[in-house]
Amino acid sequence: MANLTITVDEETVKRARIRALEEGTSVNALLRGYLEEYSGVRRERREAGRKLLELSKNSKAGSGGKGLPKREELYDRPIMRNRPEGPL
């Protein structure tokens, strides 16, 4: 991450810190969020998330509504029953 230095009068910074504290955040986090929004970073992240969700919905992979197999089911398969004993 890069550091950024800005010049703001003391009263503005004081009031901003108080308000940020009341909102459970920091002036640094507020400015970072503003710059991300202003530069389009947040929009790009939202778009990437939307595309990922769309890909997952259109994917042919899945359990077909059956859910994940239980541990016992995984180990009770022919490939597991016929394997040699001992460490791999």
Rank of each mutant, 00 (worst) to 15 (best):
E73H: 05
K57D: 11
L68K: 00
K14F: 10
Y75F: 13
R45E: 13
G33P: 02
D9R: 04
R43F: 08
G40C: 07
G49N: 10
E22T: 07
S59P: 06
G67W: 06
N58A: 15
M80E: 13
V27D: 03
M1T: 10
L88K: 02
E72C: 07
M1V: 08
A29T: 07
K66D: 07
V13H: 14
V27P: 02
L30A: 13
R50C: 08
G24Q: 13
M80K: 07
K60T: 13
E23G: 03
M80P: 03
R83Q: 09
P84T: 00
N28P: 00
G33C: 03
I6P: 05
R42M: 09
P78Y: 14
L30G: 04
N58F: 03
L88P: 04
R77I: 09
N58P: 02
P84Y: 06
T25C: 09
G62H: 04
G64V: 04
E11L: 08
D9P: 01
S56A: 15
I79S: 13
N28K: 11
G65C: 12
I6W: 05
G65M: 12
E10F: 01
S63D: 05
V8A: 14
G40L: 05
N58Q: 15
A20Q: 06
S39I: 04
L4P: 01
P69R: 03
L52Y: 10
A16K: 06
S59Y: 07
T25R: 13
T5C: 00
G86L: 05
A29L: 02
Y38P: 04
L68V: 00
S26E: 06
L4E: 07
L30K: 09
E10Q: 10
P87N: 11
P87W: 08
E44S: 08
K51P: 04
G49L: 15
A48K: 14
K60S: 12
K14Y: 07
E85M: 12
E11F: 03
I79D: 14
L53E: 15
S26Q: 07
T5G: 00
E22N: 11
